[in-house]
Simulated assay, not measured.
Amino acid sequence: MAQSHDGALENIRRYATEARALQDTQMDFDASGTEARLGNTVRELQARVQEQHAALEKLRASSGTDIRQTAHASADPRQKLRQLLTVKNAYTRLTPTAPFLPSQNSILPALLAARTLQQNIRGTKEAISTTQSQLTATETRLRHQEANQHDAQLLHQAMENRIARLRAQHEDRSQKSPAQLAKELIAARRAQKELYDDETASLGAALNAFINDHLSAMLAAEDLGGPVVGDMLDVENATLAAGFTKKGKAKAAQKPASDKLRQRRIDQIWGAKASLADAGDEDDEDPLTEAEAADSEMRTLLGDLFATLSEPGGGKAYFNIERDSAASRFLVRAKIAQFHPRDARKLRLIDFGKELDD
């Protein structure tokens, strides 16, 4: 037992020495003899192929049987048994035979190693490309899942806060009498109404300022045959006094138009209502300008449309307008009002809580 153990150790030491010597030995990379070695390898392989062909022909001639036919198992049990015995005898004779190995100077092992290495490199590159695409898809899916998780956490937190508020309100209401709850509800509704009134007044003041500072001059320009509201943002009173050409361009004012001519034009376009409404608010006797007339018409039209909402028809009732004005067209373009489907002289405000009528 000790001798076998010592023999194994000796073999290990000898293998290590030989392996170290092989590592220290420089490999022969002389390119001058590569072509000759390759030619010798090809000739060696061709000679081996010829030997195998000669052996196969000799076997066919000596046996006198069809090798292709005998390669398949026969349906006859006796014939099949003879085939199996023949295969067994062939394996028995070939087992002790040494396999064919290339010569020491053959370049065939290097070629086989290079082919295997090339296949491995190609497979590695394909694996890297596939892994990268999978990694990109996985990262995208991960980001999507993280976003969903974040949204779910926010929803969960909001639901918890809502539940906590509802529980607190329920506990608070359970400790109060119905009369006290009614008083608090009435006070909350009054506070909400006051808030809505203040916001309505603020929005109304902003709307009036917008009409007076910007919109009225553009409405007057469109009514006088000028550009549509929004095409000319800065419209001066002198431009309105001079008027516009048939092509919608401002006329070059040679001299200021007389107040009587301007007042007659204002009465023809906007009517006497605008002059009377403006005169009721002003203490002086300054002549009315085109922008002021358009401003008065827009305010009056908005007031009539809002008043129509309080009528029995409510949001479905239409207001009959006297003429097709720039103010009514602007409200329709701005999606604030809409004409009647069959009568363009009827106008109503749009109910923003419902879809637009066809």
Rank of each mutant, 00 (worst) to 15 (best):
G314W: 04
G226N: 00
R264I: 14
Q26H: 07
D286Q: 15
A188V: 04
K260S: 10
P99Q: 08
E194F: 11
R115I: 04
G313R: 08
K193L: 06
D197G: 13
A16Y: 02
V87C: 08
Q338P: 05
Q134V: 10
I128G: 05
Q134A: 14
H72W: 12
S4T: 03
L108K: 00
F100T: 01
Q69N: 05
T124N: 07
L305N: 00
S275W: 00
D278F: 11
L101E: 09
D172H: 10
T300R: 03
A220K: 02
H5N: 12
Q175F: 01
L59N: 02
R115Y: 01
E322K: 11
T95Q: 15
T239L: 06
R189N: 04
R37Y: 05
I12Y: 09
R13M: 05
S258E: 09
A238M: 03
E146D: 08
Q69Y: 05
K88N: 04
I163W: 03
S103N: 12
E322P: 01
R167L: 02
A344F: 13
E292I: 13
M159D: 12
L203N: 00
G39F: 07
K260Y: 11
T138N: 14
F100V: 01
S62I: 09
Q169D: 11
A327N: 04
S328W: 04
L356M: 06
R165C: 13
M27T: 12
G64E: 10
T25D: 08
L224G: 00
T34D: 06
A274T: 11
K251F: 02
N11L: 01
R78F: 09
D283F: 10
L261V: 14
G7C: 06
D295I: 05
R173I: 06
I12A: 10
Q254I: 15
V229R: 03
T116V: 04
R48A: 01
Q263D: 10
E292K: 14
P109C: 05
G123V: 10
Q145A: 14
A147Q: 02
L195P: 03
E184N: 01
R68Q: 12
V87I: 14
S275K: 03
T70I: 10
Q169I: 07
A113Q: 12
R93M: 07
G7D: 13
G230I: 00
K249C: 15
A272Y: 05
S133A: 15
D351Y: 07
D304L: 06
R165E: 15
S4H: 12
R342D: 09
I12E: 07
V332T: 02
E222N: 06
S296V: 10
A47R: 06
P178L: 00
A334V: 00
L155R: 05
D30M: 02
G123P: 11
L347H: 02
T34K: 09
L9K: 07
A317Y: 04
I128S: 03
Q104M: 10
A55C: 09
